[in-house]
Nucleic acid binder design. Structure first.
Lengths: 362, 362
DNA sequence: TTGTATGCGTTATCAT
DNA sequence: ATGATAACGCATACAA
């Protein structure tokens, strides 16, 4: 192949007009075959266009296309962190589903900052992203959240499809989530049934939606059994916060069991305690929430949330919708994983309960 | 606020013309202030435009902008898997660096398939992505790889910036990587120095670039010490493959130590062996490569590769470049992490060696 | 079935 | 310092 027909600077990308010229048809005809339109085109023209496109290595300019169709085939997913397997699994579900329809996935790491989520939403609006999926919880009562909610409303008005996987309280936006309150009620009840009495909850960050909901579930289950709640403050999102909390705990008297707000902090506590020579589950039980890869690696007792499925379902909503998304609320089921870090009566790996699928819309 | 001036269907997005009209200036002037141009604009006009934009919630249409500037502020990163912490850390480095400049990061999960990498490259070309970063290794000798290399050359010709983090053998493309051969030579030498003699290598998939390079490093170190190499076939990328290999191994006689192609397979083997009652490192030592989060969670002896830094450096190249990227080859340093799964002579957690930073261009 | 013409929202060129 | 106007590459309404 000769490169004699290069442009002067960087060789220009080959355009629809180039293909049309080479196929000796009009740009319109070329467009009709290359854009997958249903508009009738003679078999001969079609073949010539396809051949020319292949030969030229034509890649349709998605930008120009989106400019006219008002729809770019991209979906944004806003996560708190990319390394945390909780978000990685959600993002993976989004990507895999989006890919099938030729959608590209823009992953935005907002570090759980509502302000940063706003920034990203604005950027994604500018990209005319087909939709935006908000993963994970949020700090509910901040001024930035109020503004984010307003921005979201505006974006929806512009035709953007938004799906909320957390508890952001958007209006007129479909939500897909798990019943975080029930998750913790189930887990707490399970540990109580195992015989634990001095059962502590390692709290997540205060004011964070999933953190608060899970706390409520714990408190509910404890109240039902007339047990005294024990709250461990100062928990954060990551491994390190769980470790630090456990170390502080070692100074006083240990409870029978610790339920942590998330797998990450549970694992931090687990490793800190074991390193300090405390037997788990011999001396103390530990359980987490999420059911991440890391949890199964360390055989943690936890509740598995369907992160991948949440992501895929959200992507499906965005990718397959015709027009605007009707508001709805879908609750995905969770299931308890009896790992090796709590109690000794159950064989590890058994699935104890299967919460049922609840689905409602309105 | 009244919504009486809505469009007929979904309320149209507010456009530059809307802002200009409201600020009583021309579209050109509005563009100059909103696009951050250095072109002079009177303070008064500037203020009016900014006010109008804020009031209208104007989000510039990145598509239209990119259509004329030929540069969309997005960077694509092609990974093998999103959940694997190896890739998650690279992607995180890319995203974090890109974000600072207002770039969006498109994460593409190609499942290590050259064909899928081609598909994504084409999609990203269509998005006029500012650059594309290829993470992780690849199957080198496939027909699809040859075509991918051709596609890459064409994309570079069109002004796209490509960075190779694996060993894809692109021509005229900057590469940033680690010395995979030295990584394994160092690790092998370390285990030999610890007194291991029957030292096996759990191979990665044959024909995969990093897998082959690491194997070579192992063979080299073994040859230097006149030790007989022991190769364990059938290794894959994931946890499960390491587990399966270890189970097969249990049928025969165990070596003194196993070095696995990656942390993932090392962890699979580690957990399988421990579950089978084999003491690690008492009876057998195990080491991996990568230095992922999971490895440190389980205190695995491994070699830490600077994944985050690789991603950030690649993003920097893409985001800060003025024109085309000059070809270059940069080797980032690695360091040995003495975890708790190999030998007993070294205190765990010590950093043993620090390979030096080598950098060359041409 | 094909082609021509128009517009998408923005930046850039060229006047003023 | 400001404003009209022409691209950018594509899809589509309309004409043939």
């Amino acid at each position: 192949m000769k490169w004699s027909d290069l442009g002067d600077d960087a060789s220009m990308a080959v355009t629809l007009a180039d293909v049309a010229r080479r196929a000796k048809v009009s740009a319109a005809t070329a467009s009709r075959v290359l854009s997958g339109s249903t508009y009738p085109v003679s078999a001969e023209s079609r073949a010539r266009v396809e051949h020319a496109a292949a030969q030229l290595g034509y890649a349709p300019d998605a930008l120009a296309r989106a400019l006219v169709t008002k729809q770019s085939r991209t979906v944004g997913v806003i996560v708190g962190d990319m390394i945390d397997p909780y978000f990685a699994e959600i993002a993976s579900g989004v990507e895999e589903y989006a890919r099938r329809t030729g959608f590209l996935t823009i992953v935005c790491k907002a570090d759980r900052s509502p302000q940063r989520e706003r920034d990203y939403l604005r950027l994604l609006r500018g990209q005319r992203a087909g939709g935006v999926i908000f993963a994970g919880g949020t700090f509910t009562e901040t001024a930035e959240m109020d503004e984010l909610r307003r921005d979201a409303t505006q974006a929806v008005g512009e035709g953007m499809r938004i799906v909320d996987l957390g508890e952001r309280g958007f209006s007129d936006v479909p939500a897909i989530t798990v019943d975080n309150c029930a998750v913790l009620a189930d887990l707490t009840a399970f540990l109580i049934a195992q015989g634990h009495r001095r059962l502590a909850f390692l709290k997540g960050p205060p004011g964070f939606s999933t953190s608060d909901l899970r706390l409520r579930g714990y408190l509910h289950a404890m109240a039902e059994t007339d047990l005294e709640p024990i709250l461990i403050e100062g928990g954060g999102f990551d491994f390190e916060s769980g470790r630090a909390a456990a170390l502080r705990l070692l100074a006083g008297s240990l409870p029978d069991a610790i339920i942590a707000f998330s797998d990450e902090s549970a694992l931090g506590a687990l490793i800190a305690l074991r390193q300090a020579g405390v037997e788990v589950p011999g001396r103390i039980s530990i359980a987490g929430v999420d059911g991440t890869r890391d949890a199964s690696l360390l055989n943690l007792t936890t509740v598995k949330l369907p992160m991948y499925e949440l992501g895929a379902a959200a992507a499906r909503l965005v990718v397959e919708a015709e027009g605007a998304l009707p508001p709805s609320r879908t609750i995905f089921p969770h299931r308890l994983i009896t790992g090796g870090t709590a109690g000794r009566s159950q064989p590890a790996g058994t699935v104890i309960s299967n919460a049922e699928l609840i689905m409602s819309s309105g």
